[in-house]
């Protein structure tokens, strides 16, 4: 029975399909994580400005994204936009938009809180030593902020990778869905396939997130010296 289960993995196109699913998962994750980091940093810096209008706009945006489940956002973007204004996005594009909106909001808040948590003294003593604003940020503020951002940002990135499994609800077939398709297709002939397929998916997810964890640990160790 056991070897029947593992055979499903190598039956026909199954293995390739699972890897193609992984490609979809990784493509979506990488595009949106990189974009979220860039836009999130921008938003975080905007949020540290004490402009009341920017404050309200970013705050409402952040709370809105936080309150809305990602699933709802995906539905609104994919189906809602079509119904409301006739914009017909592909499922993948809709997923990219939602994940960037979500990632940017969360990343923006991380960047904001990291900058705010750096004591005023650090800015003042830097200024008193003659550093220009640019030098102050480059040599003193940014390096310290980055150290605080890295661990929660890695956490966010991992969460984003895991959450990509939701996009199946707007028709994007990624790794987990492919796995379920394979399992269900063999439900009556090889019930133990589920174990093997989920095991494989577990390892593929693990090895997708692992480099991020390694990177985070490496940086933390380097800074912990």
């Amino acid at each position: 029975m056991q070897d029947l289960g593992i055979r499903v993995l190598f039956d026909g196109e199954n293995g390739v399909r699972l890897l193609l699913g992984l490609v979809v998962t990784l493509k979506l994750s990488i595009i949106t994580i990189i974009a979220s980091c860039l836009l999130g940093t921008l938003m975080g810096l905007l949020m540290t400005l004490r402009n009341p209008i920017i404050h309200i706009v970013t705050r409402v945006y952040l709370e809105f994204i936080r309150i809305m489940p990602q699933l709802v956002l995906l539905f609104v973007t994919y189906f809602g936009l079509t119904r409301a204004v006739g914009i017909n996005l592909s499922g993948f594009t809709a997923a990219v938009i939602v994940f960037i909106l979500w990632g940017t909001a969360e990343m923006g808040d991380l960047v904001r809180s990291a900058f705010i948590s750096i004591p005023k003294d650090q800015y003042e003593s830097g200024t008193a030593l003659g550093f220009s604003k640019l030098q102050l940020y480059r040599f003193i503020i940014l390096p310290q902020a980055l150290r605080q951002i890295i661990p929660p940002a890695m956490n966010l990135a991992t969460r984003m990778i895991m959450t990509t499994s939701l996009v199946v609800l707007i028709g994007v077939v990624e790794m987990l869905k492919t796995g379920q398709q394979i399992i269900e297709a063999n439900r009556y002939t090889a019930p133990s396939a589920a174990l093997w397929i989920y095991g494989t998916i577990f390892f593929l997810y693990f090895f997708s997130c692992w480099p991020l964890t390694i990177l985070a640990q490496h940086l933390e160790k380097k800074w912990e010296k």
Binding site: A128, P143, Q144
Partner: peptide
């Protein structure tokens, strides 16, 4: 420029604000 003034007039604060990184 402020930077020029600060090089001539040094200042040390109450809180020992070294750069922690």
């Amino acid at each position: 420029p402020h930077s020029l003034i600060c090089q001539q007039i040094g200042m040390v604060f109450q809180s020992y604000e070294l750069f922690n990184h």
